[in-house]
Design a protein around this nucleic acid. Structure first.
Length: 409
DNA sequence: CGCCTTTGACCGGCGC
DNA sequence: GCGCCGGTCAAAGGCG
C-alpha cells in the first residue's frame, strides 16, 4: 500500500503497537488502538489526508489511489469492528449456554433430591457414587461431563450427610464420570411387554441363550440371552412370560451394543437406548417409584420403575390406548419426557425423528403372529405421535404391516 | 466341527 | 453366619 511520496504500510500496523510509533505525520493521521485483551488490533482509523493546493498535476493519479486506500482502510476497520462484535456475541452465547447448563443441572438435581427425600432418606448407590465423584472432582478441580451433579448443586452439608450415611462407601469402586454414566446406562433396563405365542420376539439381533432360571412368583421360567453379533457385546436380555397372563411375553433389555447393527436390530437398540436415557434422567418418577397412572394419558403403555433393583422402563404393547385427551389426541413425549429425549441426538447419532421412527419400526419388527396386533400397534403409535409430529403416520402404518407380513412369511 | 441349548453348579448381594 | 434369590458360568449333549 503506497502513497506516492509518502509510504504507508498498513500491513505492518501490528509492528507498531504504540500509537506514537506511527510513522506518519499530522497530515496523514492514522490512529491505531490496540486491544491487547482480545489479541487483535482494534483499529479506529481517522485518516485525514490533507492534500495541499500546491500539489502538482501529476498527483491526480495519486488522488485515485488515495481514495482506494481510504476505502480499503475503512473496510478493514469495519471488518475489525464486526469481528469484535462477533466475539462479544460469542462470549454472550457461551455465557448463556453455561447458565443454561447450570440451570438444567439444578432442576434435575432438585427433582432427584425431592424424589429421594420422599422415597427414602438413605442415599442411593448412584448418589453415593456421585458424592465420591464430586469429592474427587473437588480435589482435581474439574467436573466430568457425565456427572449429573456438580459442586454448585450440592453443599458440604449434603455431602457430609451422604458420607456419614455411607459407612461402606469405601467398598464402592471409584468410577470416573464416563464409567459412572456407562455403568448407570448398563444397569438401566428397558422392558417390552407384547402378546406372543412364540418363545421369543424377533428384534433383529442374534442371541445366544446362556441360562434359564425359575424366578420367584412366576411359574414360567426366565431365559437369559446374550447378544452374539459382537464378540464383546455386553447387551443381554431376559425373556419371561407374564405371571398373570401367560400370553404376554416380557422381554427385558440391558446394555448398549458395541458393534454395528442391521437396521432391524438398530431400531430396537435405539429404542432401548433412548428409553434408558429417558429413564436415567429420572426426574419424572413419582415418590412411589412409578408414574401416577392418573397423571399420564397413556401410562398404561409406558411405566417407569425405580423400586426394582435396576431402574426399569416398561413399554407395554399389549394394550391399545384410549384417546382421553381433550383434543382427541395425546403426545406422551411432550409432557413427561426430558428435553434430552426430545431433542438431543442419541448415542447412535440419529435425531429424534429418526429415533422415534426407528422405535416404531422396532415395535413392528417385534410383532408376533397375532394378526390383530399390527392394527392395535398402529393405533397406539399414531395416537402417541400426536399432531405435532412430522412423521408420516401412513408410512408408519405401512411399515408395520409390511414388516408384519415379512415376519409371518 | 461349530454353534446352540440345556442344566446343575457357582457367585455375590441382601435380609434375617 | 446362613439361607434365599437373581444372575452367570461351563460342561454336556443335540443339531445341521
Amino acid at each position: 500500500m503506497l502513497f506516492k511520496g509518502k509510504r504507508l504500510i498498513v500491513d505492518e500496523v501490528d509492528f507498531f503497537p504504540e500509537k506514537n510509533m506511527s510513522p506518519f505525520n499530522n497530515d496523514q493521521t492514522l490512529n491505531l488502538q490496540m486491544d491487547h485483551h482480545h489479541h487483535h488490533v482494534d483499529t479506529c482509523l481517522d485518516l485525514l489526508t490533507k492534500i495541499s493546493p500546491s500539489n502538482k498535476p501529476d498527483d491526480v493519479e495519486s488522488d485515485a489511489t488515495i481514495k482506494n486506500n481510504n476505502k480499503y482502510v475503512a473496510l478493514t476497520a469495519e471488518l475489525h469492528q464486526m469481528n469484535i462484535e462477533n466475539q462479544h456475541l460469542r462470549d454472550l452465547v457461551e455465557k448463556l449456554r453455561i447458565n443454561y447448563k447450570d440451570l438444567e443441572k439444578r432442576v434435575v438435581w432438585l427433582k432427584q433430591k425431592h424424589y429421594k427425600h420422599e422415597k427414602n432418606d438413605e442415599p442411593s448407590e448412584e448418589r453415593k457414587n456421585m458424592v465420591e465423584l464430586i469429592e474427587c472432582d473437588r480435589k482435581t478441580g474439574k467436573i466430568g461431563n457425565g456427572v449429573i451433579l456438580d459442586r454448585i448443586d450440592m453443599d458440604d452439608n449434603e455431602i457430609s450427610q451422604a458420607k456419614t450415611t455411607t459407612p461402606s462407601s469405601n467398598k464402592v469402586p471409584r468410577l470416573n464420570s464416563d464409567q459412572a454414566s456407562e455403568s448407570m446406562m448398563k444397569k438401566a433396563r428397558v422392558s417390552v411387554r407384547a402378546k406372543s405365542e412364540a418363545s421369543m420376539i424377533s428384534d433383529g439381533c442374534q442371541w445366544r441363550k446362556y441360562g434359564q432360571k425359575m424366578a420367584k412368583g412366576n411359574p414360567h421360567p426366565r431365559a437369559y440371552y446374550r447378544c452374539t453379533m459382537g464378540t464383546t457385546c455386553p447387551v443381554r436380555k431376559q425373556v419371561q412370560r407374564c405371571a398373570d397372563d401367560s400370553s404376554v411375553l416380557v422381554t427385558t433389555y440391558e446394555g448398549q451394543h458395541d458393534h454395528p447393527l442391521p437396521p432391524a436390530a438398530k431400531t430396537m437398540a435405539s429404542t432401548t437406548t433412548s428409553a434408558a436415557s429417558m429413564l436415567l434422567s429420572g426426574p419424572m418418577i413419582s415418590a412411589d417409584g412409578l408414574i401416577e397412572s392418573s397423571s399420564l394419558p397413556c401410562s398404561h403403555n409406558i411405566t417407569l420403575s425405580a423400586s426394582a433393583p435396576f431402574p426399569t422402563i416398561t413399554l407395554d404393547l399389549t394394550k391399545t390406548p384410549t384417546n382421553n385427551s381433550s383434543h382427541g389426541q395425546f403426545n406422551i413425549f411432550q409432557p413427561i419426557l426430558p428435553h434430552k429425549f426430545m431433542s438431543a441426538p442419541n448415542i447412535f447419532g440419529m435425531d429424534q425423528k429418526g429415533s422415534f421412527a426407528d422405535t416404531v419400526s422396532a415395535a413392528a419388527t417385534a410383532l408376533t403372529s397375532d394378526p390383530k396386533f399390527p392394527t392395535a400397534l398402529v393405533a397406539a403409535i399414531t395416537s402417541i405421535i400426536g399432531s405435532n409430529s412430522n412423521i408420516n403416520k401412513n408410512d408408519i402404518a405401512n411399515d408395520i404391516k409390511r414388516d408384519h407380513q415379512c415376519n409371518n412369511s
